[in-house]
Design a protein around this nucleic acid. Structure first.
Length: 432
RNA sequence: GCGGGAUUCGUAUAACGGUUAAUAUAUCAGUUUUCCAAACUGAGGACGGGGUUUCGACUACCCCAUCCCGCACCA
């Protein structure tokens, strides 16, 4: 298990404006979290990087942003309307609650007693709502429990309008909702969360090689947000545990403070989803090869990332403490490309107008170029460094009296606390 | 959902059936300070919500919410 305590991360996240409890002033709402001023930037940086990596930098990928509310027929076709509707039974002896379909015979698997089960009760993991003013069976809709179905239902649209060559993928970032029985472990299991999902459509014959390529691509992306291959455990999901239509599924697990748990998943789903929607909607889901060979329903490989879980992993991985001059220093070793503040600008002394003036010039100049630049003149210089350390700012630039003479400044590095003197005009290449 | 524990300034802690609820740190303003949380002055900031007992409840009791630990769940 990771030796970073979850409490330390939760506390820092709140103290510094990364993540707050949802509905905080009313006592909270279980399973919801709000991203504060720094958190939203961190999150957006990761999403942007993901989008660049998997959509913009590739020519076989197409973006999508589908509606959260969908026709109830979507969930009937996908199996969620029944699959998410699990009958639960409770053992009257040991009070264990179990899924009825997981129990063999009349024996409680927990306490071993026989005939102790009460009446099964339905538990639906989907949030139900009604469309329009009349609440009846026809008006029922659900908040999507995964973004994937929005991609499958638009498969035909994308094929018809952009006529992509196989293999190709459709990528989407968006919210999903699950009425979890017990949300746990900070961002890890929430009722409202965000997914970054890809459905990658392939010819069945090629699925194994494409699957392996995705494993590589996933590691490359993780590495770019500071999660190394050595931080990840690949769990081959056994045929008993994976969905019946899947021939292979890998859970990529991360070592969180509460134990190894899923960070993201990679599943080969066969043609299960498209076939189901073809059957249910009556619309053709074939791909027509350009060489006029026989049309077929493609198979699909699904890399599915939970942003919130990625953020929790990034925070766990980068939360660091060391001792400087006998004082504990807390810092986030965030990679520069996702740090919410890239560089902080300070005058060495804030009561010297000439230093402040010069610092402002540097600040305005860098802010214009990089955006994520913070002005910090509070307290003394050491205090500012520590404060920037805690929010993971990789570079601090300080303007001192020499700066006035020769246009140089010191740039101080978060991880080493070392500093170097550079020309103002060369700052860009140092923090790029 | 079940069992156990908890909930007091942003954070971390303290105290008390009865004065203005304390301390550290953080925050903000000012003085000072020539590179790693120095010092000084000042300011703002909390008893999760509701009910009961009581002359009086942050404190006791009940209900609810949330968090933590364990169990179960995770299609």
């Amino acid at each position: 298990m990771s030796d970073v305590a979850l409490d330390d991360i939760v506390s820092l996240a709140k103290r510094r404006g990364f993540i707050y409890q949802g509905s905080d002033i009313y006592g909270g709402l279980a399973g919801t979290w709000d991203y504060g001023p720094l958190g939203v930037v961190l999150k957006r940086n990761i999403e942007d990087l993901w989008w660049q990596t998997f959509v913009e930098q590739r020519d076989d990928m197409y973006g999508l942003d589908a509606a959260i509310l969908m026709n109830q027929k979507v969930w009937e076709a996908s199996g969620h309307a029944t699959g998410f509707n699990d009958p639960m039974v409770e053992c009257k002896n040991c009070h264990s609650r179990l899924r009825e379909d997981h129990i063999k015979g009349d024996n409680c698997p927990v306490c071993g007693k026989t005939g102790t089960f009460g009446k099964p009760r339905m538990f639906n993991m989907m949030f139900k709502t009604n469309i329009g003013p009349i609440e009846d069976d026809n008006s029922v809709s659900y908040l999507r429990p995964e973004t994937a179905q929005g991609i499958f239902t638009n498969f035909k649209n994308v094929v018809d309008t952009l006529s992509p060559d196989l293999p190709f993928g459709i990528a989407q970032i968006g919210k999903a909702f699950r009425n979890e029985i017990s949300p746990r472990d900070f961002l890890f299991r929430a009722r409202e969360f965000e997914q970054m999902e890809i459905e990658y459509f392939v010819d069945e014959k090629t699925w194994k090689t494409e699957f392996d390529k995705w494993v590589k691509d996933i590691y490359a992306f993780l590495s770019s947000i500071g999660i190394d291959k050595s931080d990840v455990n690949e769990l081959e999901v056994s045929s008993a545990d994976r969905a019946h239509y899947s021939k292979r599924t890998i859970d990529f697990e991360f070592d969180y403070s509460f134990g190894k748990s899923e960070l993201l998943g990679l599943a080969y789903r066969g043609d299960f989803d498209l076939q189901n929607h073809q059957k249910a909607s009556g619309k053709g889901m074939e791909y027509r090869p350009k060489d006029s060979s026989k049309p077929f329903v493609p198979h699909v490989i699904e890399p599915s990332f939970g942003i919130d879980r990625l953020i929790l992993a990034v925070l766990s991985n980068t939360y660091s403490e060391d001792v400087q001059n006998g004082e504990k220093r807390t810092y986030l070793k965030l990679p520069a490309n996702i740090a919410p503040v890239k560089v902080a600008i300070s005058p060495l002394l804030k009561n010297k107008p000439e230093l402040v003036k010069k610092s402002k010039e540097v600040y305005v100049r860098l802010k214009k170029e990089y955006g994520a630049v913070m002005w910090d003149d509070n307290g003394n210089i050491g205090k500012r460094y520590r404060r920037q350390d805690e929010i993971g700012t990789p570079y601090c630039v300080t303007i001192d009296f020499d700066s006035l003479k020769d246009d140089t400044v010191t740039i101080r590095h978060r991880d080493t606390t070392k500093q170097e003197r550079v020309k103002i005009k060369n700052l860009g290449e140092k923090i790029a």
